[in-house]
Nucleic acid binder design. Structure first.
Lengths: 239, 239
DNA sequence: CGGCAAATTGACACATCTCAAAGCCTGTGG
DNA sequence: CCACAGGCTTTGAGATGTGTCAATTTGCCG
């Protein structure tokens, strides 16, 4: 059930058999969502945190005039809003990108677990901190990268994160986001995103047809996007 | 020494006398920096975390072509890079905005403290999580707010954070950032930032002369920027 | 086969960048 | 105390990037 989560945690630090069992034993409530549905809503005070089991989700904030900005992407294994456990009040929504499935874990159980095993607490803390590092790359992309590079960078991020959990096959992965979703990630208009993606296609670094993204040469894409995966902290060391 | 930090923590949750003493007792090394100096450099593996005592600092990332993006502002009392304690490798630099003074605390002491008192660990965790919430508003501003609104929003954020620690007097505060710094926060060119600030001055919501920012009517600025300070979590509740 | 959401295209308006020059402020040394 | 240097701010003009609107095409699902 939590195998993706455990595989990502174990990729970053040693997780003992006991810790593994305690995490597996967390109580949960499973729910499925269809494209566009909200897993968590801005302004609420959830008493559970939501863990993505399959599919994709994104963080969203809305402006008074109806504009939307997405500030993060979630892949299977992400403890999407573990931060809500401390933040209490949601400052953003979490919305399904395509169909997805999530497990909701009560904050009370999380609190008990991290009180009992501070090391697990640090592992959860670590994932929020890596999350913040990812957000910083989004800020840099929004502010200073060209649209083409920005979108290429996003694809690099996704590719790296999906690869760890075995969701990349034959240099390809499924990604059901619409161009409107992409526009709300990169802060541009739908039309401009459409033209930028065509540019990427023409240059040959990315093949993106329907919901399937193929990267013929990942090194070339990394070069093009000036992407360095170090910030994702997929290297194991004691924390 | 850590009075600003303690006042911000106490604003969010109860901090016992014992906890207060333990934090006050952390070993530290004080250093002063002049404008533009780096307190911490991208790509290094610091073994101390840095706490801002006075002045301002900002997080910075650099692109290969020399462009710079700032992704956060720090005010006195911020445990600027407490996340480095878990992240190990710095994904960004921290640079002084004007003169500032910082206390460097060894990671080993922090680890011992949060192992011994999980609640302090959660308070530190909480500050990284609020930090991330601030970054999300930056993302939304970069992607979907107009330049004028974006800069106004930044001023609202600063005003609220400085107010808590008593650094706002007569609706005014010192802020030694240059327009180049602002440009690197909002992802625009220096020239455009200059014109946008003039727009804000003309509309009368902000008076900004030399390094002094005055907000004649904070409610009006909040309205203009569509700013709601809730996300800063300056309300006390158990965590 | 029909209907609807998503992707694509073209034209034009507007926002933002770049380059280059001029003006202003502040700290420093004479 | 004044003059100067250097950094910061301001201005103008033209080039480029991006947004909006509106129509058309494509692809998927029932």
């Amino acid at each position: 059930m939590f195998e993706h989560l455990l595989s990502v945690l174990a990729r970053r630090d040693h997780v003992s058999e006991g810790e593994r069992k305690l995490i597996e034993a967390l109580p949960r409530r499973i729910r499925s969502f269809s494209n566009g549905e909200e897993l968590v809503r801005e302004g609420t005070r959830p008493n559970e945190s939501c863990h993505l089991l399959s599919g994709f989700a994104a963080r969203a904030q809305y402006l008074p005039d109806g504009k939307r900005q997405l500030s993060a992407l979630h892949v299977p294994g992400d403890f999407v809003d573990i931060h809500a456990f401390l933040l209490k009040l949601m400052d953003h929504s979490v919305v399904a990108i395509g169909r997805c499935e999530a497990a909701f874990v009560p904050h009370a159980s999380l609190l008990a677990l991290v009180e009992a095993v501070p090391h697990i607490g640090r592992l959860f803390w670590l994932s929020t901190v890596i999350d913040a590092a990812i957000q910083r790359t989004w800020i840099t992309s929004l502010g200073r990268r060209s649209p083409a590079r920005h979108i290429a960078y996003l694809i690099c991020e996704l590719y790296a994160r999906l690869d760890v959990i075995g969701l990349v096959r034959d240099n390809s992965f499924e990604f059901p986001a619409t161009q409107t979703d992409i526009a709300d990630m990169v802060g541009l208009s739908l039309v401009h995103v459409n033209r930028t993606i065509q540019e990427l296609r023409t240059s040959g670094v990315v093949v993106w047809r329907n919901s399937l993204i193929t990267v013929p040469d990942i090194d070339r894409l990394h070069d093009f996007a000036e992407f360095d995966p170090t910030y994702l902290n997929l290297i194991q060391e004691p924390r």
